[in-house]
């Protein structure tokens, strides 16, 4: 039974239960919806559970270096842009989580299972929503194409993964604590991965799919290219770019790869950049602390 079928069945069951008891008890849609959400998490298969738990540890590792900004409106704005772009992907049903990290570095990160982070430093250098959609599209693509997941699996080996799998399944969907040994092992691998970087080919693939996702979401697909031009114009000795440059091909090389797509992208060329909404929702929030 697929997740969707299961949820439909659960919804139908919830509806019947509700109508049967509506006369006596207040009908609480919120409870049913939250119940269905839990079911959705609980019925995901062992592979996806493993992906989620590996991602949870990888994300925890990144959040050990920088915390999410406390501005809820800004987080909600970035979250909505991100989810809208992710909904155009092959994995719209993942539990997508987006956050702006309170840090001056210029960077963005993805972790398995649907975690996407962008730093305040990068957000402060963007000009419009299409550029943000392009950046998030690149990170979403890493998740969709399972780049970090495959790299972590390569590092981890089978024994660890079977431990993780059985442990994760035992936890079901609970937010149970992670065994310290597992946390340390996977976190160390995540650190290696995030400081060494993925294969160049993975970065180029994420650029390509990211641009397409932003275009499919209705944005000007050239947003990511505009961001890469901005990065290309910066002094590469700028310390805030250090980690990005250590882990990614040069912006000029990424632009050269994306140029091959230009004929396809021109079909999307008239789509909006939504600069006013970006300026109103994000610019002030990130430049205030610049």
């Amino acid at each position: 039974m697929s997740i969707r079928t299961f949820i439909c069945a659960a919804l139908a069951g919830g509806g019947l239960l509700a109508s049967a008891t509506a006369a006596a008890i207040d009908f609480d849609l919120g409870k049913i919806v939250s119940g269905v959400k839990q079911l959705k998490t609980a019925v995901i298969g062992p592979d996806q559970q493993e992906e989620h738990e590996l991602g949870r540890i990888a994300a925890a590792t990144l959040l050990g270096a920088a915390k999410p900004m406390s501005n809820r409106e800004l987080q909600a704005y970035v979250g909505k842009v991100g989810l809208w772009v992710a909904l155009q992907s092959e994995r719209p049903d993942l539990p997508w989580r987006f956050a702006v990290l309170d840090d001056n570095s210029i960077n963005a990160f993805a972790a398995p299972g649907g975690y996407v982070f962008v730093t305040r430093g990068l957000l402060a250098r963007l000009h419009n929503e299409a550029e943000l959609a392009g950046v998030l599209g690149h990170e979403i693509s890493h998740v969709v194409l399972k780049h970090h997941l495959k790299a972590l699996r390569r590092e981890a080996g089978t024994q660890l993964l079977s431990d993780l799998g059985s442990d994760a399944l035992a936890q079901k969907a609970g937010r149970a604590s992670i065994p310290p040994e597992l946390l340390n092992t996977v976190s160390a691998q995540a650190k290696t991965l995030y400081t060494r970087g993925l294969d160049k080919s993975d970065e180029y693939a994420a650029d390509q799919l990211g641009v397409q996702l932003a275009g499919h979401a209705g944005y000007d697909p050239y947003g990511l290219l505009a961001v890469l031009q901005t990065l290309d114009s910066m002094d590469s000795n700028d310390g805030s770019l250090a980690l990005l440059y250590q882990t990614h091909p040069r912006p000029a090389d990424r632009l050269a790869q994306l140029d091959k797509l230009s004929e396809q992208l021109d079909a999307f060329g008239q789509q909006p950049t939504l600069e006013p909404r970006f300026v109103a929702s994000a610019s002030a929030a990130v430049t205030a602390k610049k």
Binding site: T61, G64, A66, S105, S187, K191, D238
Partner: peptide, 17 residues
């Protein structure tokens, strides 16, 4: 300059976050 390689390598995973 924000966090880089060193800060990431020394980071303590923050699961509650």
């Amino acid at each position: 300059r924000g966090f880089g390689k060193g800060e990431l390598q020394n980071a303590t995973p923050d699961v509650p976050a």
